[in-house]
């Protein structure tokens, strides 16, 4: 005996009621934009491309919002979409020039300052913050995409390693290792090639 028509109707109503309303979707989308941007930024190292990826991700998420289950994390669901969009974007751009002139403002104006450490001989910090920021952006290029994503999520949003692992679909320990090594790499690079704790050079 099949399911009575009445039950089918109720199930259908239930499904419709369970879908995100446009208002709710907009609210949630606004809440995850920054996190998605950081993930996309980590994967592409291009802030403008990352914004396009966020845009596309939210458009896809809206089209597929019927598949979203409320019991699950909206952030994790959209993060998975963002990762796929970013991967496709990377593949698509692989044959194109690595440096898009449109995006030059996300990279240092020149390489002259790369070897200049912002730390002086006695450990004091030199005052040129803009130059330092440029060097940080440049040093991010030395990181793997996974390490960059983990580092940005941890540092900028303060997410726990468990949450990062959920968003990037990696183990928490892997996320922790990525952050740990990324910090060390950046400190070595920005400390003039020397890690003072080891005394070695990069």
């Amino acid at each position: 005996m099949g399911i009575p028509d009445e039950n089918v109707t109720r199930l259908g109503e239930l499904k419709l009621k369970d879908q995100l309303s446009p208002e709710e979707f907009g609210e949630r989308a606004q809440g995850v934009r920054h996190t998605l941007w950081l993930i996309a930024m980590g994967m592409t190292n291009d802030r403008h491309l990352a914004e396009d990826i966020v845009q596309e991700t939210l458009a896809i998420a809206w089209r597929k919002s019927g598949q979203f289950e409320r019991a699950t994390s909206f952030t994790a669901w959209t993060a998975a979409i963002a990762r796929n969009v970013a991967l496709n974007s990377r593949r698509k751009n692989a044959r194109q020039s690595l440096v898009n002139p449109e995006h030059l403002d996300s990279t240092p104006a020149n390489d002259a300052g790369h070897d200049a450490s912002p730390i002086n001989a006695v450990g004091g910090i030199l005052p040129n913050q803009k130059e330092f920021d440029d060097q940080v952006v440049s040093a991010l290029q030395d990181l793997s995409s996974a390490a960059r994503s983990c580092l940005l999520l941890r540092t900028v949003t303060g997410l726990s390693y468990d949450k990062i692992s959920e968003l990037l679909d990696i183990a928490p320990g892997t996320a922790m290792s990525h952050v740990y090594r990324a910090r060390k790499t950046l400190r070595t690079r920005l400390g003039g090639g020397t890690n003072r704790l080891e005394g070695g050079t990069a």
């Binding site: 934009r33 920054h34 941007w37 950081l38 930024m41 802030r47 403008h48 914004e51 966020v54 912002p118 730390i119 006695v122 450990g123 910090i125 913050q129 330092f132 920021d133 940080v136 952006v137 580092l151 940005l152 540092t155 900028v156 910090r183 950046l186 400190r187 920005l190 400390g191 890690n195 003072r196 704790l197």
Partner: peptide, 27 residues
């Protein structure tokens, strides 16, 4: 002093990342 310098450098990098990738910087 070497350890202090590393901690200060790490704090400065973190502050720089937070500033550079703050949500307000998104279009």
């Amino acid at each position: 002093p070497a350890l202090r310098a590393e901690v200060e450098l790490q704090n400065r990098i973190d502050a720089s990342l937070r500033e550079l990738f703050d949500a307000s910087n998104m279009s």
